[in-house]
Amino acid sequence: MIRVLFVCLGNICRSPMAEAVLRSKVAKAGLDDQIEIDSAGTGDWHVGEPPHEGTAEILSKQNISTEGMKARQVKEADLLHYHYVVAMDAGNLGELHEMAGVKPTTSLSRLMDYVSESEIEDVPDPYFDGNFKEVYEMVEVGCERLLEHIRNEEGI
């Protein structure tokens, strides 16, 4: 089983959006028995909460479910359990690198690292500006490219 973890700050906007989008893509590709997807936040402010209403609304419009999703905080053990740990921005990636320390870890990257033609490196946090549509568009492309990368790397 290939395991993917998306990470943002509070785990209510960007990372659950990416989790839901990639789950949908994986299911459509018939790979849900081979790829496990989750999300977490570096902060603990929203632990136990469902995705932000802006995230839920934009995903609902795309017929992508957020059912059963609850925010959680990333743990050190996640860095050993997941094969791909994908941060939404440089700040969260830095937190993950600090958490990983000198221990062997998984692949740490940002989602936009998989979109080679993009000049934007970080997925902006819509919690502050409400721009869930722009974030969804970035996440959609990023997840498509991440899935392509995983399929190539893992031979599935």
Rank of each mutant, 00 (worst) to 15 (best):
M112V: 03
G43I: 02
V74F: 02
D89L: 08
Y82G: 05
V85Q: 09
S65I: 02
S60K: 15
A27W: 08
A87P: 00
T66R: 10
A56V: 12
H46C: 06
M88E: 02
M112G: 05
E98H: 01
M112D: 03
E36H: 14
P51Y: 13
E49M: 15
K61D: 09
D113I: 10
G68Y: 14
Y82E: 02
T106M: 14
N63P: 14
L59H: 09
M112K: 14
G48D: 12
E49N: 15
S39P: 00
G43A: 14
I64N: 08
H97T: 08
L80W: 13
A56C: 07
Q34H: 09
E49Q: 15
V102G: 11
L111H: 01
A71K: 07
W45D: 06
K28H: 10
A90I: 00
T105K: 05
M88S: 05
Q34W: 07
L93A: 03
R23H: 08
N63M: 09
K25I: 00
A27I: 08
V74N: 05
D78Y: 11
H81N: 07
L111F: 04
K25H: 06
V85Y: 12
E95A: 00
A56N: 02
M99P: 02
I64A: 07
D32N: 14
M69W: 12
K70G: 03
L59V: 04
A71N: 08
G30R: 08
Y84Q: 03
R72S: 05
V86F: 07
A29I: 07
K103W: 06
G48E: 11
P51H: 13
L31H: 04
N63W: 14
N92K: 11
A100H: 03
K70L: 12
Y114T: 04
P104T: 05
E57R: 15
V74P: 00
Y114M: 06
V86G: 09
S60A: 13
M112L: 15
M88R: 06
L93C: 02
S24V: 01
P50C: 10
K25M: 04
P51F: 12
G43F: 08
R72V: 01
E53G: 07
R110Y: 04
P104D: 13
